[in-house]
Design a protein around this nucleic acid. Structure first.
Lengths: 354, 354
DNA sequence: AACTCCATTGCACACGTGTTCAATGTTGCA
DNA sequence: TGCAACATTGAACACGTGTGCAATGGAGTT
C-alpha cells in the first residue's frame, strides 16, 4: 500500500504520486524527481543520473527509475536544470512583421534548425519595424538565453555591451553594425544590386526607378545606392522613391507615383514584396505591359515571386544558406566573431525584357 | 576600495561586480541579486522586494537598490523566479509550415498578443503537417509552460490527459477534438461552406470542383462535405480532389487535373493558398477566363488574396477575432473549457461571376 | 586470504529567486 | 512618558535540479 508510506524529503507532502492525481484532480503540480525516487526506492541522485547522459547508474536502478518515471509522468524541469548548470538551451529571436513572407520564411527555417539542434526558440514580436527592440532583448536576458538572433530592427549599442559583458551571442541579420564585435550575416547587397542593374541595362532600359521603403535600413540603402551608381555609370537615369512601410501597398503607391512618368521603362524594387505590389499596380491599374515596355526586378526571392501571376525576375538569396549561417554563428566559441556573406544569384524569370 | 572587500553570501566569489567585469572580461556570468545587495549595502531580501510589486521597501532602500542594479546591469532571473513561484509566463506554441501565409499571420498576431499580456512565446516548429507533435509538447512541459497553443497538427489523447493532470491549458485551433475537455477554437466552417456554395450557385455554376489537400484535416473535411451537400441539394454536380500538401502547388495540380473537364465552371478551394494556385493555373496554363467561364472561391482571406493579380472572392475569418479568442481562452480558470466559434463572412471580390 | 581497483550510491551543497516569520525601529495616541 | 500599531528589515527556508565527495561493496590479482 502506498497510502501510508512515509513521505521523505518533502515538507508539503502531496501524496504518493499517481494515486494522488486520481484522488484529487485539483492537485495541479508537476511530478518531481523526489516523487520518482520515492516510488523507485532509490535516492534522488539516482533519478538525476538516470536522466543525465554519461552518468554512472547500474542497469537495475536505471530500469526501476525509468519505470517509475513513466508511471508518474515525470519530466525534467528545464528551468531548475538550467538554473543549476547555467547553460540554457533557449535562443531568443526578435523580429517584426512576422507575417511578411521574407521574415516568415526566415523564422520558419530558423525555428526548425534550432529545434533540430536541441535548442528552443523564444520568440519576441517587435510589432513594428521601427519600434525599439531593447525591451525585448532585456526580456531575453531575463530568461538567460545564451544567444539572440535579431531578424529586424537594430539593437542599440548599450545592448551590444550587455551581451558582450554577459557572454550572450548576438547575431544580427542584414543590419550592418558599425561595431566589429557582433556576429553579422549579410546578403551580398552590392553584388545583387549590380546584377539587377546589369540586367536592366541588358533590357535596354534608359530611365529606371529604384523603390525603397521609408524605413531606410542599411540593407535597403546599400542596394539602392549601389544600383543607382551602376546605372549612372552606364549613362542611365535613375529616379528614387522611399516612403511607407516595407509592404505590398508601398509597391503599389510607388508605381502610381512614378509611372506617371511614361519614360520610365525599368524598376528595381529592393524587396520582392514591394516589387509584387509595383508589378500589380503597373499591370492592372496603369495598364503597362511587363516586360515589353517595363522591366521589373526584385530582391529576396520570396515564394510568391515564383507564382505564375508574377513570375518575377529577382535577385535571390538562399534561405537555407542564410539559416545555416545563423546556426553556424551560434556554434562559434565565446569571443569569436564573424561576418558572413550570403551569396546571391540573379533568378531569371519573366519580368525583365530579353 | 572594492578590491579587498569581504565577499559574503557567496561561496565562489566572482569579484565585486562591475570591477570584476572590467578586470576580467571572461567572467561571463550574470549579475545576481546578491551582487546588487552587496553593492547597495542591504540584504538580498531587500533587492527581491524592490523588484516585486507590492512588497514593503522603504523609499531610501528602494532607491539604493535600483541604483546598484542599474550600475551592475542586474536583471531578475526568470528561471529562478519561475522555479520558486511555479507560475511561468511561458506559453508554448506548436505549428507547422510557419511560412504559409495563414499560419504566419496567426503566429504574428498571437505572439504580439502574448507579449502585450506579459507572456512569452516558446515556439516549436512541427516541420511537417503530418509529423507527430507529441515530442514537441513534451518539450513544452519540460519548460513548465502553463498553456499550449496548437496551430496545426492534432495532439494525441495521452497528451491531453497529461495537460489535464498537470493543469496545463491546451488550446487547439481548427481541429475538432473528440474530447470535450479541451479548449477549441473553430472557424465557422459550416456557414462558410454554405456561403461559398450559395455564391457559386448564384454565379449559375452547374458543375463545380471542390479542392482539398491530401492531409484531410477535420476543418477541410467539414468545409468540403458541407459544400458538396449544399451544391447537390440544389441539383449541382460536384467533383472532389484531395491530394498533396496544403500549398500553392496543390492548387496548380488540381486545376490541371480537374479542368481537363471543360464542363466544370466553378471551384471551391478550402484554402486561399490552394485557390491562388488553382487560379494561376486556370488562367495562365489552361487559359480559362475567370470569372466569365470559371468562378473560384477560397477560404481564409490571407493577405495575398487581396492582391490585384488575384482579387480572390473568399470566405474570410477575422484574424484578430481568432487571436482574441485564443487570448480569451488563456484567461479561463483551470477546469473551465470553452469552444469558441470564429465568425466568417463572404468577401466579395472579382473571381466569382456576378 | 589480503589487497587494490573500480563501479555504484547517497549525502550535501549550489544555482537565484520569492516569501514567511520574528525582530527591530518608528510613529501616533492617550 | 508609556503603549500599541505599524512599517521595515534580515535570516531562513523552499522551489527542483546537477554534481563533488566520501562511503560501500564486489571483482580481480597476488
Amino acid at each position: 500500500m502506498h497510502t501510508g508510506a512515509l513521505i521523505i524529503g518533502r515538507d508539503r507532502p502531496r501524496g504518493s504520486g499517481i494515486d494522488d492525481r486520481k484522488l484529487n484532480p485539483m492537485a495541479k503540480s508537476f511530478v518531481t524527481s523526489i516523487d520518482v525516487a520515492e516510488r523507485a526506492g532509490v535516492s534522488r541522485s539516482a533519478v538525476s543520473r538516470t536522466f543525465t547522459a554519461g552518468a554512472s547508474v547500474s542497469p537495475d536502478v536505471r530500469q526501476r527509475v525509468l519505470k517509475a518515471a513513466q508511471e508518474l509522468g515525470y519530466r525534467v524541469n528545464r528551468l531548475a536544470q538550467t538554473l543549476n548548470t547555467s547553460s540554457s538551451n533557449l535562443v531568443g529571436v526578435v523580429g517584426a512583421n512576422l507575417s511578411s513572407p521574407f521574415i516568415a520564411k526566415q523564422l520558419d527555417m530558423l525555428s526548425l534548425g534550432l529545434l533540430r539542434r536541441g535548442q528552443q526558440c523564444l520568440l519576441l514580436n517587435a510589432a513594428d519595424a521601427r519600434s525599439d527592440i531593447a525591451p525585448l532583448i532585456e526580456l531575453i536576458f531575463e530568461f538567460r538565453a545564451r544567444a539572440i538572433v535579431v531578424l529586424s530592427g537594430e539593437p542599440p549599442a548599450s545592448i551590444v555591451d550587455e551581451c558582450l559583458a554577459n557572454g550572450v551571442k548576438l547575431i544580427v541579420i542584414n543590419r550592418l553594425m558599425t561595431r566589429p564585435d557582433t556576429d553579422v550575416i549579410l546578403s551580398d547587397d552590392i553584388l545583387g544590386a549590380r546584377l539587377a542593374a546589369e540586367r536592366l541595362l541588358a533590357a535596354r532600359c534608359r530611365k529606371v526607378a529604384v523603390v525603397c521603403s521609408g524605413s531606410l535600413t542599411p540593407t535597403q540603402v546599400r542596394r539602392a545606392t549601389t544600383f543607382s551608381e551602376a546605372i549612372r555609370e552606364h549613362g542611365g537615369e535613375v529616379v528614387r522613391w522611399s516612403e511607407g512601410p516595407t509592404a505590398y501597398e508601398t509597391g503599389v503607391a510607388a508605381a502610381h507615383a512614378l509611372l506617371a512618368d511614361e519614360q520610365i521603362d525599368g524598376a528595381f524594387c529592393v524587396t520582392d514584396l514591394m516589387a509584387i505590389g509595383f508589378l500589380d499596380a503597373a499591370r492592372h491599374d496603369l495598364h503597362r505591359c511587363v516586360p515589353d515596355d517595363l522591366s521589373v526586378i526584385g530582391f529576396d526571392d520570396i515564394p510568391q515571386s515564383a507564382w505564375k501571376a508574377y513570375d518575377l525576375t529577382t535577385v535571390g538569396q538562399s534561405f537555407s544558406v542564410l539559416t545555416d549561417a545563423v546556426l553556424a554563428a551560434l556554434d562559434h566559441d565565446d569571443g569569436e566573431v564573424s561576418t558572413q556573406m550570403v551569396p546571391v544569384t540573379l533568378i531569371e524569370r519573366g519580368t525583365a525584357r530579353k
